[in-house]
Design a protein around this nucleic acid. Structure first.
Length: 273
DNA sequence: GATAATGTTGGTCG
DNA sequence: ACGACCAACATTAT
């Protein structure tokens, strides 16, 4: 669920909240796999203030007054919520950051794949990540170099966070459709014009998805919710993702589904050569 | 009610 | 370097 646009939506919620400068008075962790050393974690961040929030790839970065950074990765079903103080425990609640003031932060995660990490250097921790697609550094030249140096299938390469950070299954498929390129093409076979189209498609698809508040599929526990518990609207704008068998919105040929890198891959056999 | 599939990542093994 | 496969885990769709 949470790919770059969903994570960005949550980060913007935090930036617009009035939480920065408020102190963390208590930390409750109820999922052993969330953190390697929860004792140490609780000791270290209790009493700290949250000073800022940013995103790198699919990571949420919460900066703290101690100078350390709390990194949150939502993986498949994680939700980082800003909620009014309440004694109730949420379904699948795995952690709570109790704050001064009227709100608390709660982390919900049905599948328990989500991770917290506390680090002195977010830069060092995240150095394995590739290009940041909505940053100035995501130039056509840098992107082209990454593509042309690999023989891997395009879909697999786009999902590789060490190449481009933030694309997941939905937006990789949607970007390839927008660029009219087949997902199984070897990356190094792309022509200049195709590189340019794909580069633009990635930026446009991600930007549009952020404007719609991310994608929320289905109604269950796996569904994406922003920091205030609201769904996104971008799922209504899919051209290929989970549209197997339905007519292509450009040419009416049925959308096909194949598997690449053990992931469902959706494309139009007519539009994407 | 059993079975397959699910938006992520990190590992092994050939 | 790369793809195939598996593991973490719970819920939902078929």
């Amino acid at each position: 669920m949470p790919e770059l646009p969903e994570v960005e939506t949550v980060v913007r919620n935090f930036v617009q909240s009035k939480l920065f400068g408020t102190k963390i008075t208590e930390v409750v962790i109820t999922c052993p796999s969330l953190l390697a050393d929860q004792e140490q974690f609780i000791k270290e961040i209790t009493g700290d203030c949250i000073t800022g929030c940013a995103r790198r790839g699919k990571y949420i970065l919460l900066t703290l007054s101690s100078g350390k950074t709390l990194l949150v990765h939502l993986r498949m079903t994680g939700k980082l919520l800003i909620v009014k103080k309440s004694p109730k425990k949420y379904a699948h609640e795995r952690a709570a950051l109790i704050l001064e003031g009227e709100h608390d932060i709660r982390f919900l995660d049905a599948r328990k794949f989500g991770r917290f990490d506390l680090t002195e250097s977010a830069e060092e921790f995240l150095k394995h990540l590739g290009l940041e697609p909505l940053d100035k550094t995501f130039s056509l030249e840098a992107f082209s170099r990454c593509m042309l140096r690999s023989k891997r299938m395009l879909k697999a390469l786009l999902l590789d966070q060490t190449v481009v950070a933030g694309l997941g299954n939905i937006y990789a498929d949607e970007s390839l459709f927008q660029a009219a390129i087949h997902p199984a093409r070897a990356a190094c076979t792309l022509a200049q014009k195709e590189l340019k189209n794909l580069h633009k498609a990635i930026i446009d698809v991600l930007t549009a998805a952020i404007e719609r508040g991310g994608s929320s599929l289905g109604r269950g526990q796996g569904n994406f919710l922003n920091a205030y518990g609201s769904k996104g609207e971008n799922q209504h704008a899919f051209y290929v993702y989970r549209r197997t068998g339905r007519p292509c919105l450009h040419c009416s040929v049925p959308i096909e589904r194949i598997v690449i890198s053990q992931r469902s891959t959706h494309f139009c056999p007519h539009c994407q050569k």
